[in-house]
Design a protein around this nucleic acid. Structure first.
Length: 644
DNA sequence: CATGGTCGCGAG
DNA sequence: CTCGCGAC
């Protein structure tokens, strides 16, 4: 494609949901974000909304401390499973000693959001439950072409978005790459708007030439804002950013690098030669550091929305008998089997391996573990071990029982596992379903006429992304030096950095404390019930979202075809037309994508069994749950969550 | 005193 | 495949 100038650099976006877990609860419970709210897990807060932060409530605070700081705060406990956790009336009946948390609620919302991202960009990498990287290079180049052809408003003219330049730095409108970034910013703004209108979640974003910069940028203007890093601003930005806040340098490596170099800001590392860095931190890490502090990073956005593994874990007060271990194991396996089933339907794949990890107390251990002088911790009071086995039956719909027996068999074979304080199970190494007769795949395939070849949700993974572990970074010098526009100087912006939003790391929640009586799920819902919902067996998120510009028919010069509806539009109408889609046609598209998320949520409520029947039945094997099966009519995210 | 619970990656 | 790190 004509992109002789887009080749100057990539347009990378880092999209970050603001205090995600809190937002999910706000939407689910219909609580306005103006009320201070936090999500708790046992006695600690794992997410705090912006209103509550004003009172000084922070992530990690104890609930009592939170209430002292902010008496009016609403606390919502994450969903828990196990030990008849039902009825948590007035109080909080979340028994840490008998339940485990479930993050499914947040995963569901996460995938719904990712689906929208995917609808706006063909290259989306789900980086975590609430973050994604997008490569908008192509889309931005295309928009630039439109602008040049006079078919769209100039990219520098985007007043409707909350686009912001990095502190004091004005984007250079004569710089082709800056224009590409601006185009990306416009597209990003539209995408964020879609997420907010369709699901009710606000997103912050950073738009830059690579992942490292985009990530730093997204945190600059936190709640619900986006920040662009113009070509000339990256250098100054790194002058203000603490080294430790660069992705990958927040832990031990960063600590080591700082103490070794005395660098405070990221750019301070520029004073060291590449050899110096390599000599001290190894080839990969050294070369990566050398480049990163210069605002260079060529790590590709790896198109991928699917999780690579599914894991469940639980830490508990040490148990010494296998009986107790079995109980925890059952709980873990119950959740894992359900998640495997959901994953299977969502991605048409099966996990083939199971890894059991356990932490056991060492022989002569004390109930104490203190570590001073943070060199390297691990007071040897416990050991962690893991063992991997094949999932029986090739991973075809493993039942809770089968997982339990497998896991317990492994556990039993492990010596000194006994005083056990933590168990973790991971299902991984996925592969396609065996399309034999009897399989769901063939079942679905049999009904309608030959369904179109399962459209590849994601574009094929282009290149193995390199990561830096505790050791080093894979430089892949190839295109490293060649392409990278962002090394210049320019203006910078203060980088408050403060507390990030985000989720602690877990994901699902259930119990609610605050407004116990508020099934007010569809508060904002304009009840735009949709009718046209036809099921598509396996076309999930990406499927529908991907671009399929297959046959570009000849258009009159200056005219463009709307990628959404195919309509041919006049030059200046295109942008408006696209915005229009987001503001309106979105409901339609979302309806489709929503199916997946809602579907997942619905399934989560069924107990295992998961009959190979077509659709899941109401009141899935669970007795207590008052799961009123709702026939889903057009629904919004609210509907994913059970009202009560 | 101590946040868990999930994820992904790379070194060994 | 196992272990540890880093991040959310």
């Amino acid at each position: 494609m004509l992109r002789s100038h887009a080749v100057h650099g990539r347009v990378i976006v880092h999209a970050d949901l603001d205090c995600f877990y809190c937002q999910v609860e706000h939407v689910r419970l219909g609580i306005p974000t103006s009320v201070p709210l936090a999500v708790q897990q046992w006695d600690g807060l794992i997410a705090v909304n912006y209103e509550a932060r004003k009172s000084g409530v922070k992530r990690g605070d104890r609930t009592t401390a939170a209430k002292q700081k902010c008496p009016q705060i609403t606390l919502v406990h994450v969903e828990t499973i196990g030990a008849d956790d039902e009825l948590d009336d007035a109080g909080t009946r979340h028994d840490k000693g008998a339940c485990k948390v479930s993050l499914e609620r947040y995963r569901t919302a996460s995938f719904a959001i990712m689906a929208i991202f995917q609808a706006h960009c063909r290259r989306v990498e789900r980086a975590s439950i609430d973050e994604a990287y997008l490569d908008l290079t192509e889309e931005a180049a295309k928009l630039c072409q439109e602008v040049e052809a006079g078919n769209a408003r100039d990219v520098a003219d985007s007043p409707e978005t909350d686009l912001q330049g990095t502190a004091g730095h004005r984007v250079d409108p004569t710089n082709a790459f800056d224009r590409a970034l601006l185009a990306g910013a416009r597209l990003t703004a539209a995408m964020r708007l879609a997420v907010e209108q369709e699901l009710g979640f606000t997103v912050s974003a950073g738009i830059a030439s690579n992942k490292v910069l985009a990530k730093l940028a997204s945190s600059i203007n936190k709640p619900n804002k986006q920040t662009v890093v113009p070509a000339g601003a990256s250098s100054d930005m790194l002058d203000t950013v603490p080294l430790r806040s660069v992705r990958g340098l927040g832990g031990k490596l960063g600590e080591t690098v700082v103490s070794w170099s005395k660098a405070e800001k990221a750019s301070d590392l520029k004073r060291f030669s590449q050899q110096d860095l390599v000599g001290n931190f190894g080839t990969k890490t050294g070369e990566w550091l050398w480049r990163a502090c210069r605002g260079m990073d060529d790590e590709p956005v790896a198109p991928n929305l699917k999780p690579k593994s599914l894991s469940v874990c639980k830490s508990f007060t040490p148990v010494r008998d296998e009986e107790s271990v079995l109980n925890w194991m059952r709980l873990l396996c119950t959740e894992l089997s359900q998640r495997i089933a959901v994953d299977r339907e969502a991605w048409s794949r099966r996990a083939t391996k199971l890894t059991l990890q356990m932490i056991s107390l060492k022989p002569g251990s004390r109930a104490n573990q203190r570590d001073a002088g943070g060199g390297n911790g691990k007071s040897n009071t416990s050991t962690t071990r893991s063992r991997t086995v094949d999932i029986p039956g090739g991973g075809e719909s493993p039942t809770t029982a089968s997982l339990v027996s497998e896991a317990m068999a492994v556990f039993a074979k492990t010596d000194n596992a006994l005083p056990c304080s933590r168990l973790a199970l991971t299902a991984h190494e996925f592969c396609g379903l065996i399309s034999g007769r009897g399989s769901i795949a063939s079942f679905l395939r049999a009904l309608p006429p030959p369904p179109p070849p399962p459209q590849q949700p994601m574009p094929p993974p282009t290149s193995p992304l390199e990561k830096w572990g505790s050791k080093g970074v894979k430089p892949d010098a190839k295109q490293a030096l060649a392409v990278d526009p962002s090394g210049q100087a320019g203006g910078g912006r203060s980088l408050p950095e403060g507390d990030d939003e985000d989720v602690p790391g877990t994901e699902t929640a259930e119990a609610s404390i605050g407004p116990r009586d508020v099934p007010r799920v569809g508060s904002k819902d304009d009840s735009r019930v949709d009718r046209s919902r036809n099921f598509q067996p396996s076309s999930h998120l990406a499927g529908a979202a991907c671009d399929e510009r297959t046959a570009p028919s000849p258009l009159r010069p200056g005219y463009e075809r709307c990628p959404k509806c195919g309509k041919v539009l006049a030059p200046e109408d295109l942008q408006e037309h696209l915005d229009f889609h987001y503001a309106e046609g979105l409901q339609e598209r979302y309806t489709r994508e929503g199916d997946v998320a809602r579907d997942m949520a619905a399934r989560m409520s069924d107990r295992e069994g998961l009959p190979k029947r077509k659709i899941q039945e109401a009141g899935g094997g669970k007795r207590a749950k008052s799961q009123t099966k709702r026939p889903a009519a057009g629904l919004r995210i609210d509907s994913f969550f059970k009202p009560t």
